[in-house]
Design a protein around this nucleic acid. Structure first.
Length: 424
RNA sequence: GGAGAGGUGGCUGAGUGGUCGAAAGCAGCGGUUUGCUAAACCGUCGUAGGCCUUUAAAGUCUACCGGGGGUUCGAAUCCCCCCCUCUCCGCCA
């Protein structure tokens, strides 16, 4: 959501930059609707002012003991007129809001122009793709062979795109969660949050998941609650409708949650293994920043996520998403892609974004210090990391010729073992 | 699930039909006083939208006292529904 005054006054520049996404702002429709809406509001408000004045008059006359029947009748008639104008004004206002909330965020000036993932800009590469003296297997073979992943039973108890982790597989997931939370809280300065996993529609609206992406969510029947698609939603909404102390910024939070996504529209993509599931675990990083510091904070947040991969010895690269590949809500996004030998490619394991004031305006998250007027903060978030994808990256990168998996040094104290062998 | 009490500005809290966008206090901001600090005193201090204006400010209007509907010429105040918080009872990991 844009600031209306800013949007009006920078219409040409905004329209030009959004064309890079590509998104075409219907400028004529905007101007027309904005004009009609303002005219309708003015008209209705003028009548309301008249009505309020007459009502006050009636009060005075009554206290003076005079008859006011005529005046009351006139206000009643005025009221009918106002009701009609109000209906029109609010209909136009709703239409206008829908138009505005459908306009994607303005890409930051540092975001490269491009059409697809092929145009993303690589900004960092760490390590080299793992080399093997044998043919590496994908995790969907390694996992079941080791008895640590069970797709068939997951399909039985729930359905497709769910998985059961068994034994050391379950423990590896838990170890990763604890490892990530420990590094972020003890060394990167984040405060741990454990939010509700079910969230209401207002929260989803503020982060931009609703109304546009309702189809991607699981809704709890008979309630206004949805299963969280990411901890970004509950954690960003922590300070919805609040005025924070500017001096307390940046606020740095991290949260472990399961994430639930219906994956509507992704049929046929990543169908094998645990790359794309209806439920996956994630440790999320969220920041509330001063506007002037938000890009420095984005770089730090991205570095915090990369640090996890480096400690685990997993090769990765980081790209800036180009205008054509980024989501509608962020102003800038870094994707961190981990090397997966089983697929022979780099695959997204974290997405770190600066939303600037786009979410904060929807959610009314502001900050002030003493003399300053409350201003909207900038919100940022990124995966730190997607646990399931980290799990499979370890299994694939640390696999041995005999099918066992070496546990990365950093996880051994959490795992209580340095190797995962088959239980059969 | 049952019974009761509540939800008012950044915070605390008064306000049961018109003079209420809302007392008072705290915090903040500007100032006076003052070796410094503290204190005291004076002033100021909500948000959004419309009009006016080149913009902003100022001015003015509209809306907002948990959310939605209703009664009334007029609602923070009365009525209905919902949400949330607290207390007690029941149930329960």
């Amino acid at each position: 959501m844009y600031d209306l005054g800013y949007f009006r006054n920078h219409l040409d520049a905004i329209t030009a930059r959004l064309a890079d996404r590509p998104f075409s702002v219907d400028v004529d429709a905007f101007r027309k609707l904005d004009g009609e809406r303002r005219a309708a509001v003015s008209e209705a408000e003028a009548l309301k002012a008249q009505k309020n004045a007459e009502s006050a008059e009636i009060g005075k006359l009554k206290r003076a003991g005079q008859d006011t029947a005529d005046k009351q009748q006139r206000v009643r008639e005025l009221d009918e007129l106002i009701a009609k104008l109000d209906d029109r004004a609010s209909a136009l206002d709703t239409e206008f809001r829908d138009l505005m909330s459908g306009i994607p965020n303005l890409p930051h000036e540092s975001v490269p122009v491009g059409k697809s993932a092929a145009d993303n800009l690589e900004v960092r590469r760490w390590g080299a793709p793992t080399e093997f003296k044998f043919e590496p297997k994908p995790h969907w073979d390694l996992g079941p062979d080791l008895g640590i992943l069970d797709f068939e039973r997951a399909a039985k108890i729930t359905g497709a795109r769910f998985v059961v982790y068994m034994g050391l597989g379950a423990k590896l997931e838990r170890a990763l969660i604890n490892f990530m939370l420990d590094v972020h809280t003890k060394e990167h300065g984040y405060t741990e949050v454990l939010p509700p996993f079910a969230i209401n529609s207002a929260s989803l609206y503020c982060t931009g998941n609703l109304p546009k992406f309702e189809a991607d969510l699981f809704k709890l029947q008979g309630t206004d609650y949805y299963l969280a698609p990411t901890a970004e939603v509950p954690v960003t909404n922590l300070y919805r409708d609040e005025v924070l102390d500017l001096d307390s910024l940046p606020i740095k939070l991290c949260a472990y949650t399961p994430c639930f996504r219906s994956e509507a529209g992704s049929y046929g993509r990543d169908v094998r293994g645990i790359i794309r599931q209806h439920q996956f675990q994630k440790v999320e990083l969220v920041k509330f920043s001063k506007p002037e510091e938000s890009y420095a904070e984005l770089d730090k947040l991205t570095a915090d996520a990369q640090d996890i991969l480096e400690r685990l010895g997993l090769p990765y690269r980081t790209v800036v998403l180009c205008t054509g590949d980024m989501g509608v809500n962020p102003a800038k996004t870094y994707d961190i892609e981990v090397w997966l030998p089983g697929q022979n490619e780099y695959k997204e394991i974290s997405s770190c974004s600066n939303f600037e004031g786009y979410q904060a305006r929807r959610a009314s998250i502001r900050a002030k210090s003493g003399k300053s007027k409350a201003e909207h903060v900038h919100t940022l978030n990124g995966s730190g990391l997607a646990v399931g994808r980290t799990w499979l990256a370890i299994v694939e990168n640390y696999q041995q010729a005999d099918g066992s998996v070496v546990v990365p040094e950093a996880l051994r104290s959490y795992m209580g073992t340095d190797i995962i062998r088959g239980v059969k």
